[in-house]
Design a protein around this nucleic acid. Sequence first.
DNA 1: CGAAAGCATAGGAATCTCCTTGGGAAGCCG
DNA 2: CGGCTTCCCAAGGAGATTCCTATGCTTTCG
Lengths: 305, 305
Amino acid sequence: MLSLHQLRCFLATYEHGSLTAAAEELGYAQPSVSEQVRALEKTLGVPLFRRVGRGVVPTTLADTLRPYAEQAIAASEEARRAVQSAVSLESGTIRFGMFGAARLYAGAQIVADVLERYPGVRVELIGQHSNEVQEQLRRGHLEAALIAATSVESEGMTVTPVARDELVYISADPSRLRSPVTAARLARASLIMPETTWRSSDSVRILLRRFLHEAGHNPQTRIEVEEAEISVDLVGRGLGDSVIPRAAAEQLVPRLAPNVGWVSLRPKQYDVMAIVHRRGAVLSPAAQVLIEIATRHIRSIAEPV
Amino acid sequence: MLSLHQLRCFLATYEHGSLTAAAEELGYAQPSVSEQVRALEKTLGVPLFRRVGRGVVPTTLADTLRPYAEQAIAASEEARRAVQSAVSLESGTIRFGMFGAARLYAGAQIVADVLERYPGVRVELIGQHSNEVQEQLRRGHLEAALIAATSVESEGMTVTPVARDELVYISADPSRLRSPVTAARLARASLIMPETTWRSSDSVRILLRRFLHEAGHNPQTRIEVEEAEISVDLVGRGLGDSVIPRAAAEQLVPRLAPNVGWVSLRPKQYDVMAIVHRRGAVLSPAAQVLIEIATRHIRSIAEPV
DNA sequence: CGAAAGCATAGGAATCTCCTTGGGAAGCCG
DNA sequence: CGGCTTCCCAAGGAGATTCCTATGCTTTCG
């Protein structure tokens, strides 16, 4: 089988026209290089050098081989460099999981920050929703992620809470925003909720469900949509009210539905944002960088835990 | 040190997302592939796969590495193909030595014949003069050559006579062409000779020198030029006469000096054309092809030995 | 002709490669 | 939940490869 080592010996010999000189350049003894070149000739089944007097002379087949050998060697060296620079974050990809809502109001800024610090890097923010992200983590497709975690424990995962964000009740009707919304009032409200697909595991839903249950009520929604933006838009049109994290409200409401206001729940409810990764995993520099930046960001727009 | 084998294992693993599947594809046992991948990770100093549950998942560094690995592998495979196709004369270079005069009247046709049979190859006809060619042979820069050999022996070389070409006396004066030229007459002639640079070792010169010496004369030339064409041209202008191989005369005279005629020497003298290569050398298919074609050609325009 | 240069060969130590066997963790299924 | 399968890692050993030193042979050069 062809090997890079053989090609390296071949090229050095070709360039110097001498096995001895090639050996010196490569830091080997002369017979070693001789052996490698002979092995290459054997695997290719052709003579590459004529042994003539003292010295060796490349055949035309060696001329034919040379450019390919150079390309293979070059590719292997570039591979080294590329990987090294990816490690040092001069290039390469940082892949990080992030749930939908966080992407909405922090994603862009996080990407911008990473790029400012590491201009050569590619950034991928993966995942629509924290549960999907958690699944990818479990499967190893993601190294780490920022998720909205209902509980701070998760099997086989290390979860590090970063910040909490209050859930607020949003409505286009100012009369409903005069005082904090209790479970009783929430149970009577006509709710528009996003994340339909994840309805059973979405952390906001879980919080609300618990909130209502504890007061003896059952949750009920009027309208189910997929995107948080759409639910805010619908709330703006007066078709119902909703409950979303405050940071999301601050981000989406002015843009999509300026007539909408918000008020706390009573008692206040908090969605916890956490960094999560496989237990015992060694995080790459890239992941560590993104964790650091994401953490700082989330803390700047939400309350510390 | 990076090796192609490691890269092959890496790529197979990357593509299958599994060491076991990669091993099956490559025809190895699973631990072997595992070891290669681990060795690659060690030499690069970075993790390429995350071992997660069952299966392995490429890291972003693996993504970074992959295109380079593919390029290196592809280059090595193309190297194989290129060399094979050069061996089978679908491509590659045929390099062959040939002395000046033969190039004049057979070179073009030989190249044309080779290209007709092997459309993909490059042809290089090397060498101005048989002595220069012989030197390149000795140094191993040429595999084989067609030379004008005075003697059929040459140190360390195998010389195979192919054809002989009679030397003829050419002149613009018909009176000097009525009968074959003897040594005595030649000694009195005003000669224009080509190949000045090689005057001491040119085969025609050597033949003439011997021819004259045996009759007790000394050779003397009136005009020395480098190119056979120029000497013929000068003969046509009546500035002197010359001695050249008959095939050269047949080729050059009608074109350059139609008023020139030729006559044999007495006794007739022959320049011998021969294939020569290093003693004991195994000739490549390319060289054999060219030898065959050149031999056929020379025989068609000169006498067999 | 002797000295130097340069490749080939030989033999041995160290390393690598690749296998087989066995163990453990994770997922799958009844 | 418990057994079964899958897939990876670890260990050990046989065989091949690599790489060295020492040496011999041929060519070249003074």
